[in-house]
Design a protein around this nucleic acid. Sequence first.
DNA 1: ATTTAGTTGTTCCATTTGGAACAACATGCG
DNA 2: CGCATGTTGTTCCAAATGGAACAACTAAAT
Lengths: 161, 161
Amino acid sequence: MAKEKPAEAAPDLTQIFDSIEYPEAYRITYLANAIVFPAYADIKRDFGLVRAEYILLVSLSHFDRLTAQDVAKISRRPRNTISRAVHRMLAEGFLSRVSDPGDGRQALLQITPEGRKMHTKISAYLADRQERVLGGLSAEERKTLATILKKAALHAATLDT
Amino acid sequence: MAKEKPAEAAPDLTQIFDSIEYPEAYRITYLANAIVFPAYADIKRDFGLVRAEYILLVSLSHFDRLTAQDVAKISRRPRNTISRAVHRMLAEGFLSRVSDPGDGRQALLQITPEGRKMHTKISAYLADRQERVLGGLSAEERKTLATILKKAALHAATLDT
DNA sequence: ATTTAGTTGTTCCATTTGGAACAACATGCG
DNA sequence: CGCATGTTGTTCCAAATGGAACAACTAAAT
C-alpha cells in the first residue's frame, strides 16, 4: 500500500476555518457542500434526477401551484435551467402544467402523486445527510443554529440580487 | 408595465423555510447560495476566474504548500477540476509548482505574490457579500452562529464521504 | 390604436463540470 | 526481484450549466 502521508508534513486542513477572511460564509458553504454534494450524487445515481429537477419537486411539494418563475426565485437558479427541468419532469409524469387563463404568458405547475412519492424518497436522502453532518451538535446547539439560520435566511430572501 | 402579481395569489415563498423536511440543511444551502452565487458571478465577470480557480487561490493563501489532492480534499471537489484549475493558474502566473523530490507522483503548489494579490481582491467580494447576507443578525447572533458553525464544520471534516 | 416597455418561458450555444479510464509512480508482500 | 494494490495527476467524453437572444404575451402611456 502507498504511504498515506509524508512523515514531515501533515498540515491540518481545518485550520482554514479560523484563518479565512469570511469565516461564517466559508463555514456555511463548507457545510452546504458537505450536505448537498454527496446527497446529490446519490440521488443522481439512484433516480437519475439532476439538481434543478429535485429543486422543482421540493418547491412544488410545498406550494400548491407555482409558475416556473416562482421556482427560479425560490431556488435562485436561472430560468432556463428550471424550464428544462419542467419538461423532463412533465415527461416523467411527476408534475402537471396548465396555462394560466388569466395570463397567457405563464403556466401553473402542480406536483402529481408520483412526483410526491419521488420527493419523499429524495427528502430522506437529504434528511439523512443532514443528520450525519450536523450530528456532532447538541440538541440545544441544533435549536439555536436553526433559529439563527432562519432569521438570516429570511433576511437574505429580501435581497434582490 | 406588466403586472407584478396576480391579485388572488401571491404566495409567501419563504414559508418553505419552516415546512421543509430538513430545515437546517435547507437554510444552510439557501444562505450558501445567496452568498456564493452572486459573488461568483461578479468574480467571473471582473477577473475571469471560475470557482475551482479561486478555491485554489484561497487554499494556497492559507497553506504554504499543498498538493492538488490536498486542495481537492479541502474543497470537496473532484481532482480533475482542480487539475484543470492548476494549469490555468500556472499560466496566469498565480502559482508555482515543483515536483516533490520525495514522491514522484505529486507536485507541491505554492501561491505567487500575484496570486496573493488576486486572492485579496476576491476575498473582498466574498466578505462584502457575507456582510450583506448576514447583515440582519445582531453581533451576538453572529458570534453564536460562528461558534456553532465551526463546531459543525469540524465535525463534517471528519466524515470521509 | 399604436407605441413602448416589461414579463414569461424557451431555444441556442459556448463553457463548465465531473465520472471513468489512464499512465506514472509508490509501497507491501510473497 | 516480480506482482498486486494504492495514489497522484491527467485526458477523454458526455452531460449539465447559464448567459443571451428570442417569440409570445401583457400592460401602460401617448
